[in-house]
Design a binder for these strands. Sequence first.
DNA 1: GTTCATGATTTTATCGATAATTTGACGCGC
DNA 2: GCGCGTCAAATTATCGATAAAATCATGAAC
Lengths: 222, 222
Amino acid sequence: MNARKEDTLAVRISRTLADRIIAGEIEPGTRLRQDYVAEEFGASHVPVREAFRRLEAQGLAVSEPRKGVRVASFALSEVREVAEMRAALEVLALRHAAPNITPAILDAAEEATRAGDNSHDVRSWEEANRRFHRLIVEPCGMPRLLAAIDDLHAASARFLFAAWRLDWEARTDHDHRAILAALRKGDVETACATLARHVQWVGQRPVPTAGGRQRKAFAIVG
Amino acid sequence: MNARKEDTLAVRISRTLADRIIAGEIEPGTRLRQDYVAEEFGASHVPVREAFRRLEAQGLAVSEPRKGVRVASFALSEVREVAEMRAALEVLALRHAAPNITPAILDAAEEATRAGDNSHDVRSWEEANRRFHRLIVEPCGMPRLLAAIDDLHAASARFLFAAWRLDWEARTDHDHRAILAALRKGDVETACATLARHVQWVGQRPVPTAGGRQRKAFAIVG
DNA sequence: GTTCATGATTTTATCGATAATTTGACGCGC
DNA sequence: GCGCGTCAAATTATCGATAAAATCATGAAC
């Protein structure tokens, strides 16, 4: 996914770290120590610091002035916040994208939906889901809006992996199909309404904690 | 406004540069050369680079991998984009803030509206306008959402200053009053609808260009 | 046993210098 | 005159080292 040669070292480091944080490989609250990271990537700490700034901007890390940066923690309230922001912005994007959506794009989106339904692990489901959402909003041609949506998807994925890290049950996504059907009919309003509801649905499931007990985990499943 | 001692050097540099870019002191497209900036602030270029990353995240600068960073340019399409994003996100925030808005907050917001009406220059009007909007959305208590709105306001201010750099005619803001009246009555839906329309209104005015001719300038006036 | 101060260690923040890359100019051949 | 390659100057990206700050542990006083 990452490590394109034309990118600067800091960009590559930030992407790798972002992947790890999203995948849940690094616990929320963990301190990211620049020397260790620098050593791992065989780099100095200057590009590492720049990578930290990028993570900060994406909301994946928080930095306190002279105390370093740590992986951002998250609570149920943040899951809801991201879900609502996604609903607001993706609907806006879809409304502008709709006139530019071609049958080929709808076919690709349907393909992504099928891929999601056939996924047996979270990672591949998330990848297919993200592809679906990206396909239908991209034709809006609003770069700033799309960048904001991308960042929110990264946060979503993080919540998702935290809850469904290990197991995943396959299921058919009726919302995606309803959105595509509405778009095929040219019924943009229904598509937007369905998308808004779809994205705001916050799934919950029990997750075993370290103490042997159970706690509820929440995530956006759409 | 800036230069708080507890902040890191990079933060202070980025804030100063952001102010300048927003105020239009630096032309869009201008290259920001790290050595010059470093020298001006009496610093090395490492914190300057980090400042650049922050500006990039705010959408005030764009960076090409080995070619340096330049002040972001902007077109009418971007003004519209920011206006629509602001409408979507501020309405979302207001809807959540409404139940937590106290009479004291409404009074402060009314004060801000009056201050805006009595402003005879763009900068003080913008400051009052921003205060109004911030006051009514802040009680939503959604930090990520508020941060996103802040960045959009910075972009808005930039467009505004570019169009009304020198002159400004005082005017009474009826929309702000209508929003406050609706909130006082507990009519959140009307308040949200008015806010959405208010923010999306893109003002335009002729501006003299260097060539002695005139071009249209566009800005969000709300 | 608890609290507070003190010193050692770790970690961050910054600097000065070097390597790599781009930009721009000049001159050569066509 | 126009395109193209080469070289020099400017600029970015990175590194290693130093200074400053925070954390942690230890121990003394109460």
